[in-house]
């Protein structure tokens, strides 16, 4: 009963968020333009100098990394959206209604998931244009996209909590930028980690961003035949990534819902 109500109310809130995306297309334009820009910059600027140890094709190596980076940056939209709704008093309106206590969060993360689907489609098309190829079968590729979206969804819940805590949407953007940049760069996203200094290498090998990227490379057939670095997370990239998704959802869903109950307008 409660779960049904959360889903019904969540769908109503998600619809509201999607209307907003339609009315303010800037948000969608920027969330899709920046990954395209990243793909082009890395492929043509760094790609000319980087030869990813053993990988014949840097662009194939790069695209799964950009996928991972993009959906992580995309999760800040969830946080900024929550912070914006609090600032404008809309959360107060929602909280005074006899609706499910988790509906606003369910709705927000759902609409951001749909936004992410669109972003992934646009990135894939861009990738295909510059020479990225899926070299596996349909099932592997589908699992690859699902795993990527699952990770994006889990990250949305992390950022939802951040958005409920910080004082303004701008803080979400600035703070997350500071955290997400190193988080996505100290990983195998853009370059192989073989030559990283020891400390960074250890971080990179256990960084879930690396495992998402490794899992994508395996599922899309972009490893170039190079075996993963000899550590458990990267040798079991799909399982390790899935465990992270479960862990993030299990921890951040209840924390976010709890914070939502207390959130006050600012």
């Amino acid at each position: 009963m409660t779960a049904t109500k959360a889903l019904v109310d969540g769908a109503i809130v998600a619809k509201r968020n999607l209307i907003k995306i339609k009315r303010v297309p800037d948000l969608l334009v920027f969330s899709t333009m920046s990954p395209i820009m990243f793909i082009l910059l890395f492929a043509y600027v760094f790609g000319s100098a980087i030869s990813p140890g053993g990988h014949a094709n840097y662009r194939e190596f790069l695209i799964p990394g950009i996928f991972a980076q993009t959906v992580i940056f995309g999760s800040t939209i969830t946080g900024a959206g929550m912070a914006d709704d609090i600032q404008k008093g809309i959360i107060d309106r929602f909280r005074s209604l006899p609706m499910s206590r988790s509906a606003v969060l369910v709705g927000r993360t759902t609409s951001d998931l749909l936004n992410n689907v669109l972003v992934v489609v646009i990135m894939s098309v861009t990738g295909l244009i510059i020479g990225w190829r899926i070299r596996t079968g349909f099932v592997d590729a589908a699992v690859g996209f699902l795993l990527l979206l699952a990770f994006a969804y889990a990250m949305s819940w992390v950022m939802a909590l951040v958005g409920l805590i910080v004082p303004s949407p701008e803080v979400v953007n600035n703070a997350s930028f500071m955290l997400i940049f190193p988080f996505t760069f100290i990983a195998n996203t853009f370059v192989p980690t073989n030559n990283f200094p020891a400390v960074l290498k250890a971080i990179a090998n256990w960084n879930p961003v690396s495992s998402v990227t490794q899992a994508e490379r395996e599922l899309f057939g972009n490893t170039g035949g190079v075996p993963p670095i000899h550590t458990w997370p990267l040798e079991h990239a799909k399982v390790y990534t899935l465990l992270w998704c479960i862990f993030l959802v299990a921890v951040f869903v209840p924390l976010s819902v709890r914070q939502y109950r207390r959130a006050a307008s600012r």
Partner: peptide, 26 residues
Amino acid sequence: VSGQYAAVDEYLTGFENLDMVGRLYG
């Protein structure tokens, strides 16, 4: 409840705002 700062969604139309609230009231 109607607050000090109008808690309406500025990207939705007037109709969409009220329709949404109505649905959330069930």
